[in-house]
Design a protein around this nucleic acid. Sequence first.
DNA 1: TATTCTCATATTGTATGCAATTATAAGTGT
DNA 2: ACACTTATAATTGCATACAATATGAGAATA
Lengths: 220, 220
Amino acid sequence: MSTRAEQLCAEIADAILSGDLTPGSRLDEQGLADRYQVSRTPVREALRLLAATGLIEVRPRRGATVAQVSSDQLVELFVAMGEIEATCARLSAISMSPIERRQLESLHERMAKIVDSGDEGSYAEANVVFHTRIYKGAHNSVLEEVANGLRRRLSPFRRAQFRAKGRLPLSHMEHTAVVDAILRGDADQAHQAMLRHVNLVEDTFEQMSAGVAAKRDLVA
Amino acid sequence: MSTRAEQLCAEIADAILSGDLTPGSRLDEQGLADRYQVSRTPVREALRLLAATGLIEVRPRRGATVAQVSSDQLVELFVAMGEIEATCARLSAISMSPIERRQLESLHERMAKIVDSGDEGSYAEANVVFHTRIYKGAHNSVLEEVANGLRRRLSPFRRAQFRAKGRLPLSHMEHTAVVDAILRGDADQAHQAMLRHVNLVEDTFEQMSAGVAAKRDLVA
DNA sequence: TATTCTCATATTGTATGCAATTATAAGTGT
DNA sequence: ACACTTATAATTGCATACAATATGAGAATA
């Protein structure tokens, strides 16, 4: 087992990613220390670790808050994510081993069945694996880390992404374009297909959040 | 003025980037505390901040050391850097404002004169500005941060990059291809030109480090 | 009544002390 | 002579205590 600070980092991250701690909420050091039965010291370290990943923001002398990204920043995050993913896809088309290609294809076929079953939860889960495989396939741990970091930062904002009507079959079709290009080693096509895919994810999100915003306006 | 930990972070980073602290050297908390006349607490925070940027490595219970990247990791860093820079160049070709394009062009012309003068120091300085302008021109703060972070991590390993014989005019020629593509809004060409440029930087580095390694072998 | 200044309170930043773990070195046995 | 064990020392991790600064309430004044 590692250090207490790292454990706290993971626990707090979970609390944020699960929606238990909502964006903008204040993270009181003493409060967290009490809650987790430790002193402030490891809590502080955990907060710095989280700040490094972008999940929270710490302003000197002003404490830490769960990062609340503006609409503009969210767009930037999605654009960056798309570019990084597209890069990974391009490199995967060049660098993936035959075994990795085979595994990607097999996963894609399994996901086809999940689409038919309509199980959104399973698809979301498999989707993470799908993208992770492509990060790994690029054979570059630096890019892989950046990609995983961005995905983590964005995950609070697309939890219900696949609830959008008919999104599952669409997502799978887009994946097909990506997988085909990677399997036949067409780097440029892989890049384009992945960029298109992530952009469409972004669009879906924007439509949904627009709906949520509308509801919020009605309630408020 | 910010917090003590951040100041220390900057000072230690300078010590590393200036070559004062060499890769692999141990960073004793108490030692640093004594050296900078503070207690261990802010030193610890500074070390975590540095670890987040990849400049140092901290292993639980085993202290911090200046990151020494293996030859493989170094290649990965250069590849990732190239991909990110190429992405920024492509986005710059699309997104740069007329003013930004004008500024890039002007800087490029100024650098031509520096090449003629043969002043390697001035060129290296201007080169950082050149690349930074392209990060900014992508109009995406996330990518910009990633790019700056990678550049920082790599900087210890290419300090003497422009000392390589005839590298200055070559670098400038490569820049010309990048600038031309960006100015005329040719995204694909900007991408390709930048990728080629960074790959050549990597090659240069590898030749030089091979030379250094050879010397080391002779000495040892 | 609104605004600004002051002061009290709460929270963060830093220092110090203690406990736990790891590195070091000495001593012993083969 | 070398490897292994054990004990000591040094260093990190965590807790607590103190100092410095931001925040908010309340009062005084325009």
